[in-house]
Design a protein around this nucleic acid. Structure first.
Length: 498
RNA sequence: GGCGCUAUCGUCUAGGGGUUAGGACGUGAGAUUCUCAAUCUUAAAACACGGGUUCGAUUCCCGUUAGCGCUACCA
């Protein structure tokens, strides 16, 4: 340890928590990435630290600006903000080249002139011989002067890190504990490609040092890469951040979540009618648990956590060591819970988006719309319901579900009676929930049939569905005239159609 | 193949040397009755296996098995 290093580590202790979310824009923000972002965000907010957003776009062929936009959109949808960035690695290439040169100068790296074809061939040969395919280090011993001359003369070369051939590389992981890797198992990995673009291994380390990241919270798929990075921190004379690797999210078949399992993009969940907070809550407890004590302290609800609660309770200690299966049923449950708990006013903008995407236009006053939402919230499962099965509450154009019609209003005499009931309602003076029910029941007794038959039939005519809130509450919401009109509508029973 | 990680109900998990192994989702049954996808009640459902250590392991250690990850001039 040099003096400057110890001074630096003291200084770093005084620095606030700094974490980063560093997606690669080779695809949309996927579920796993979203959870990584969430844990970083929660961690930063918990400690009043900073979240840096960094776009790892050094793979120019696979990266695109559209994907960056999509990722930012995904984060915003989930209600996560960031304090710095987005920084693009593609705009910081000089930094990585400088670091590579520094490593070259200090002997921690060397030029390698082996071609891809040669490497490929050797790998294949090694695999055939049952050996571990690993770079054999043949360019390690090319004298520096010669390497510089060859490189300067235009011979393509990559820069490789010179991994110690003995010893072990250790680090502490906040989730998995003490980690130790035998250096001899590591190969001399590539830092700089022959086109001068850094690989992930280099850029991630250089940026994490440059951005003074204190905690690297990322997917467990990086656990095995970490010793390569630790080696670079040491070679560069930088102190180590705290690493925290997150278990992976799996599909129902316990393989890594992928497109095969359905939606993996978080935006797909928005499009499926999921409330962002519900999705976030679901994601937060996938691979993390606040623990019994913290749970109890938060009161009776043990599964539903507000943003503030999540921030307050979040801790690296609660992160699970094992992978978690993504459970759609539980997500759906969270969604219904959030739909119920939201104030109608708060739900409205989300519902309006659904209307817009379904090209549906409500035909009611703002007050009526809010009342309808409040009426329907307890039985909505999904935001999509408001633009589909609930259309009868927001306008007079709605379809009658054919199965419901067949079951409850296929009888012509019943239809006639419902129309008559409609007339009776139309003539009422004090139309309210209690009186509407009284009139219906008296009407049923008068005609000698069960109230249930009328109720079920009326429900279908009034709402188009066989499932709805309490019928008389629906009537009250709809109002006398609309109820009267709908009951008297003479659509032909579905069954009678040729 | 090598290296690494992991292992509690079907799933997410709590717990932790002595517990009736707790909760949630889902599932079954019942209640309610104007419908249910609501509500209430209730049931079934787990410590992967084998060795240690110990008076006592689901918990600690080792191994086996299984799953996952890494093993690129991808990230």
């Amino acid at each position: 340890m040099t003096d400057s290093q110890s001074i630096r580590s003291v200084a770093e202790k005084a620095t606030p928590t700094r974490v980063r979310f560093a997606p690669s824009p080779t695809g949309y923000l996927h579920v796993g990435g979203a959870r990584t972002a969430l844990f970083n965000w929660l961690f930063a907010r918990h400690f009043g630290g900073k979240l840096v957003l960094r776009i790892e776009d050094t793979d120019m062929e696979r990266s695109s600006a559209a994907m960056v936009t999509g990722i930012l959109e995904g984060m915003q949808w989930l209600g996560m903000d960031w304090d710095e960035g987005p920084f693009h690695q593609s705009e910081r290439l000089e930094l990585y080249r400088d670091a590579a040169h520094k490593l070259l100068e200090t002997g921690h790296a060397y030029h390698c002139f082996c071609t891809r074809e040669e490497l490929e061939l050797r790998r294949a040969t090694a695999a055939e011989a049952g050996e571990t395919p690993r770079y054999d280090g043949r360019c390690r011993h090319i004298p520096t002067a010669e390497a510089i001359r060859r490189s300067a003369s235009g011979e393509p070369a990559v820069v490789r890190f010179r991994v110690p051939q003995s010893g072990v590389t250790e680090f502490h992981d906040a989730v998995f504990g003490h980690m130790e890797f035998v250096n001899a198992e590591l190969e001399d990995f590539v830092l700089l490609r022959s086109d001068g673009i850094p690989t992930y291994h280099l850029s991630v380390v250089v940026d994490d040092i440059d951005m003074q990241i204190t905690h690297v919270i990322r997917g467990a798929d990086h656990l095995s890469n970490t010793p390569k990075q630790v080696l670079q921190y040491r070679a560069l004379g930088a102190s180590l951040p705290v690493f925290a690797h997150l278990p992976l999210i799996l599909g129902p078949d316990k393989t890594r979540l992928s497109k095969r399992h359905g939606a993996t993009s978080v935006m797909a969940y928005r499009d499926m009618g999921i409330i962002p907070e519900a999705f976030r809550n679901f994601l937060a407890v996938l691979g993390w648990s606040p623990g019994e004590a913290a749970r109890q302290a938060e009161g009776p609800d043990r599964e539903i956590f507000s943003t503030e609660e999540l921030i307050r309770m979040f801790s690296l200690d609660g992160i699970s060591h094992s992978n978690a299966v993504f459970n759609n049923d539980k997500l759906a449950w969270y969604n219904t819970e959030y739909i119920r708990r939201y104030q109608s006013e708060r739900l409205l903008p989300l519902i309006e988006k659904e209307w817009k995407s379904a090209a549906y236009r409500p035909d009611r006053s703002a007050g009526e719309i809010l009342a309808a939402i409040a009426l329907l919230q307890p039985r909505a499962r999904n935001l999509k319901d408001f633009a589909s099965t609930f259309q009868a509450y927001f306008g007079d154009k709605y379809e009658i579900d054919s199965a419901a019609a067949a079951k409850f209003i296929s009888d012509a005499s019943l239809r006639t009676l419902l129309a008559e009931l409609g007339q009776r309602y139309g003539a009422m003076d004090n139309f309210n929930e209690a009186s509407a029910e009284l009139v219906l029941r008296e009407f049923a007794a008068e005609k000698g049939l069960k109230a249930g038959a009328l109720i079920n039939g009326a429900r279908v005519l009034l709402t188009g569905q066989s499932v709805a809130p309490s019928l008389f509450a629906v009537m009250t919401y709809l109002g006398r005239d609309r109820v009267a009109r709908r009951l008297q509508v003479q659509t032909k029973p579905q069954a009678a159609q040729p």
